[in-house]
Design a protein around this nucleic acid. Structure first.
Lengths: 236, 236
DNA sequence: CTAATAGTGTCTATAAGACAATATTCC
DNA sequence: GGAATATTGTCTTATAGACACTATTAG
């Protein structure tokens, strides 16, 4: 908080104009590869370009920037109640041609089932993060930061469960971790760690059958961990 | 980035007024306890209260919010070239009586030697983080977030070296880690990890003498790690 | 020499990974 | 039964911690 502007609360003397926005890196797993949601911009700047979903912070209605990010997720992707965390804030005079701008970037993880292909605000492209097109503004840096965060947290926490649906088998969950981390994991160790975290509970009687081999048990996240991540002290 | 406001870059239709500031949680170690820098606010709101150093983002001059935070560090604490990282952005309609505000919080680590007691903007109080007074705005939450971040990163990285001066002995460094983490560490393991990280180099011939026991070797951070943190895969 | 802390060697405990054996299913 | 994957048991290896021994200094 500044000690300037004793009489006028307006920051105009210091800040003629700062554009406050949020951007959302919405990630999901398609065919064991991370994909990010891009929208085609309907208006300038960068009209027609595929970019991250984002929007102005609405001071009248948004409780905070996370609420603004949830509004963007709902309005532009049609997604509600998904995992969302604040990433970092990107700012500067050059990142947006409209002027000095500040964007609070958020990262959302979406279960692969029930992904919208058509959002309320037009078509959504789900792009493999390894094959990103050129992105406007500093969106490439924002996506890179999101990937770094997700990969880092996936090393020692339950973060990737938010890429799964309600129920999943342990082999499926391990595949999700491996896709995010880009490396294979030891099966025995993975199961030990999941057990130690106390994150999951077996769904009684629910088994994934149909294949010509032993069925796999379905698991779900315990209610206590629906909102908070579980962590393991020494990584997976 | 919004797709609204096609013709007017102004966000006024969506955001009548958003106050953009930075706040800095400047931490240092005094007598093996973490202390945070507080300044007495010269102007309302919360005039006279002790609060985090902060200020408006200056769109004319600041390259980004980190530059604004460095400016606050220089102008209000007289500190230059210290370790600084962005923490998180705090926002909402209620946190500041002046209106809907957004503060990009940063965390700075200062070596205990050469701390200013008198900053350019008045007296500085260095307060033990365990004995914080009531703080205005949401500064208590910002300090809590900074402490959580620093303690978390100290578990697996070289972050605490930024609380030390140019040279330090390994027993001193271990004491810094223990103060930050609030727990004792195994001496042999600590030295093994420091060795594995490849972070430090012995200062040739520099030993801490004067006490009635074997002198300790002085170490310094290798140039390659002055800007980046070193990490250890499984914590300390 | 004594006291005190620095620095190192080594043994033990714990955790991670490799490997393989058993369990179930569909055909 | 055969093929395939799930699940579990167990051995090996790697890492962390406990403990103690040696090193070096001031007085």
């Amino acid at each position: 908080m500044s000690t300037r502007s004793p009489h006028r609360p307006s920051p105009h003397e210091d800040s003629p104009h700062i554009i406050c926005t949020v951007d959302v890196v919405a990630l999901t797993l398609i065919a064991t590869r991370l994909h990010v949601a891009l929208l085609q911009r309907a208006q300038p700047p960068a009209q027609g370009d595929w970019a991250l979903p984002g929007g102005y912070v609405h001071a009248q209605t948004d409780a905070d920037t996370s609420a603004a990010a949830r509004r963007v997720l709902a309005d532009k992707l049609g997604m509600h109640g998904v995992y969302l965390e604040q990433l970092a804030t990107f700012s500067g005079p050059r990142r947006d041609p409209r002027g000095w701008s500040l964007s609070v970037a958020h990262c959302a993880l979406l279960p692969a089932d029930a992904l919208p292909a058509q959002g309320p605000a037009g078509a959504i492209r789900w792009v493999d993060v390894q094959q990103l097109p050129g992105l406007p503004f500093d969106h490439a840096a924002i996506v890179a930061a999101a990937l770094a965060r997700v990969r880092n947290k996936s090393q020692y926490s339950s973060l990737p469960v938010h890429l799964c649906g309600e129920q999943f088998t342990l082999p499926q969950l391990q595949a999700v971790y491996e896709a995010v981390l880009g490396d294979t994991l030891n099966k025995v160790s993975f199961r030990r760690k999941m057990d130690d975290m106390g994150l999951l509970e077996a769904v009684p009687g629910a088994m994934l059958t149909g294949a010509a081999h032993r069925p796999a048990q379905f698991w779900r996240v315990r209610p206590a961990y629906r909102q908070h991540l579980a962590v393991t002290p020494r990584g997976l």
